[in-house]
Design a protein around this nucleic acid. Structure first.
Length: 594
RNA sequence: CGGGGCGUGGCUCAGCCUGGUAGAGCGCUCGGUUCGGGACCGAGAGGUCGGAGGUUCGAAUCCUCUCGCCCCGACCA
């Protein structure tokens, strides 16, 4: 492919509205252009990468018997009304009317359509299980699209759905897909982790997210350094810490400490001074308190108070799940202050009415704690949650932290990573099959709802994530399997006849051997400019043909990642390229996840 | 949706405070000299200054309204 004819404009300067690396590099390298917030055009280079990744996905899914289908982007409201999501899905669902005044939406996901397809086609247990997928453009009208392809409104996604006669069979398929995803991301050549995640209010079901590891990732991940336990920090089980020795329990001393005007936990602890604590309280002997308003599926609400050790962080997702709620928000500060009759910083769990109190596990059995007195500027001392908070539940509601002991193996410690969520496997159960009446006849001739699973991969996000993990100061460093081209061939003196002849010969030879070559034969550009462009585009291998090298009968091969250069006569370049490819593919095998 | 910021040739930005009829660098075209890490000289093309209204003899500049975009907080692949 001749670069002079490629639809491409590289930029020397970073467009000002690009703020993450992948977006900056994809815009500078002419791969994408923004059309509107979160909506991009893909140029040939980008599309080549996307297609390559899609094909990896296809190949691996087809190995497990998944069938590719294509569903409509524009979906009738009827189906969404049936599942109940027309009202529940919020504003991310872009809705509009056609000329006949009928409501439609742009598909943000396809559970409704696929369930409709299957219920109209599958009648018998003999036709199950069934696993179908599509690779298609999705639209979600995100409140705040950002980070280029990482969180667009329009994006390409692989979504797959499976249908089963039983829960057990859905579980079996879940792990089949889990392993298929591991193969897919391993082939991509990126570092990744399958991560246990919060399954939300759907309840009982388990789910894994697949994360590409990158410092810029939006999600926190904790991974045990000894066993396989890896989870989203929203979900990571926090170990119960040993109860600390706070001496012999005494009664609750009300309004014991006065730390006026001091809000932060550390300063408060330091300011809690009495004759026995002239230097203030240790922070682990203080407690902190948060009031949440939780909402349930039937739209009712309730107040929940969370009590934690002063040096721990509350995890609202855990609080929400323990309360059995579908949604949670911090009780607005003014309302909370009115409710407790104390300013922020001095609220506490003692004596509150109509509040469900949940105490973190690490405070179970603790005595002589401090807590807010529900009186501005004052704290109680001597709190014993089990004694002083009747009706309180004890549960794990704190964020696990790096170096906490793993709850699964009790040996290892958590290590922290940042991740970009690129895929998810999820057991749906019968949520859609029941509401949409997607049933089959079992061996007894009895009608049963199908058990469903769903499996997503953000295709465009994955390509962006691969860049987030593979770049340097000069540009992208593509992993071989999804590089737009594998080889960048630079004619440094294209007007020189010998250079041109050799370069075209090399191009032909490599292409004949099955390699993808972009030939930069543009005239009138200095070598330096071509080098800069080549580094920016970041194909794994670069071949340089110049008059200077040919004087000695040599052309050069350079590795984008290591910058190592080999010189050979043109006749040996094919062999050298083949060796380099083999080496890179071998290195990829060790780069993947576990 | 709340808070903050920005809209000026394809890209990055100056000019705005203190109104006087639009500028630089990069990119692009043509000619010439260069040619191994973003070369140089000369000549060009390209902008209703996001949009509408207002103030004024005169608005990129001041006022009002609007649209779009970006960043920080609750959703998600």
């Amino acid at each position: 492919m001749k670069q002079s004819k490629l639809l491409l404009q590289t930029l020397r300067e970073t467009p000002k509205d690009a703020d993450v690396i992948s977006q900056q590099l994809m815009m500078r390298s002419g791969m994408i252009q923004k059309q509107a917030a979160g909506i991009y055009s893909y140029f040939p280079l980008a599309l080549r990468s996307i297609r390559k990744f899609e094909n990896i996905v296809r190949e691996e899914l087809e190995k497990d018997g998944c069938q590719e289908i294509l569903m409509p982007n524009v979906q009738p409201a009827e189906l969404w009304e049936e599942s109940g999501r027309w009202t529940f899905y919020g504003k991310e669902l872009l809705r509009f009317k056609d000329r006949k005044d009928t409501w439609f939406c742009l598909g943000p996901t396809h559970e409704e359509v696929v369930t409709d397809m299957v219920r109209r086609t599958v009648r018998s247990y003999k036709q199950l299980p069934m696993n179908v997928f599509q690779i298609q453009t999705k639209f979600r009208d995100e409140i705040r699209p950002r980070f280029g392809l990482m969180r667009g409104r329009e994006f390409i996604m692989k979504d797959g759905y499976s249908f089963h006669v039983s829960d057990a069979d859905a579980d079996r398929e879940y792990w089949v897909m889990f392993n298929a995803y591991k193969r897919i991301f391993a082939r991509l050549g990126v570092k990744f982790r399958p991560v246990e995640a919060d399954s939300g209010a759907i309840g009982g079901s388990f789910t894994h997210e697949f994360h590409v590891l990158a410092g810029s990732g939006e999600d926190g991940i904790l991974s045990c350094d000894t066993c396989d336990y890896t989870s989203n920090i929203e979900k990571t089980e926090a170990p119960k810490l040993a109860t600390q020795d706070h001496g012999v329990a005494f009664d609750l001393k009300r309004d014991h400490f006065c730390t006026p005007g001091i809000l932060s936990q550390e300063l408060q602890a330091a300011g809690m001074i009495d004759t026995e604590h002239p230097k203030g309280m240790p922070i682990a002997q203080t407690s902190k308190f948060f009031l949440y308003k939780v909402m349930f599926a039937d739209q009712s609400t309730k107040l929940v108070g969370a009590v934690l050790r002063g040096d721990h962080e509350v995890n609202p997702v855990k609080v929400k799940n323990i309360a059995g709620a579908t949604d949670i928000e911090l009780f607005p500060i003014e309302e909370a202050e009115a409710f407790t009759a104390a300013k922020s910083g001095f609220m506490g769990p003692v004596g509150l009415k109509d509040v469900q109190i949940i105490v973190d596990l690490s405070l179970q059995g603790a005595v002589n704690l401090t807590c807010g007195a529900n009186k501005t500027d004052y704290h109680h001392f001597g709190l014993s949650p089990e004694r002083d908070l009747p009706g309180a539940a004890f549960a794990d509601i704190r964020f696990a932290a790096e170096w906490d002991v793993c709850t699964r193996c009790a040996k290892g410690h958590y290590q922290a990573f940042r991740g970009i969520e690129v895929g998810q496997v999820f057991k749906l159960g019968t949520k859609y099959s029941k509401s949409m009446n997607c049933t089959f006849l079992d061996e007894q001739g009895k009608e049963q709802p199908m058990v469903m699973g769903c499996y997503g991969i953000g295709v465009t996000r994955t390509v962006a994530a691969a860049i987030e993990q593979n770049y340097d100061a000069d540009g992208i460093i593509w992993p071989w399997p999804i590089a737009p081209f594998q080889i960048h061939l630079l004619s440094l003196d294209p007007a020189n006849e010998e250079v041109s002849a050799v370069a075209h010969q090399v191009e032909k030879e490599l292409e004949a051997a099955g390699f993808e070559v972009l030939h930069d034969e543009r005239e009138g550009l200095s070598p330096g400019a071509k080098f800069k462009d080549a580094d920016l585009l970041g194909f794994p291998l670069r071949i340089m043909v110049g008059a200077k090298g040919l004087k000695d009968g040599m052309i050069e091969l350079r590795d984008r990642r290591t910058k190592a250069v080999d010189k050979v006569p043109p006749g040996q370049i094919l062999e050298l390229v083949q060796n380099a490819k083999n080496r890179m593919m071998k290195e990829l095998e060790s780069a993947g996840g576990r």
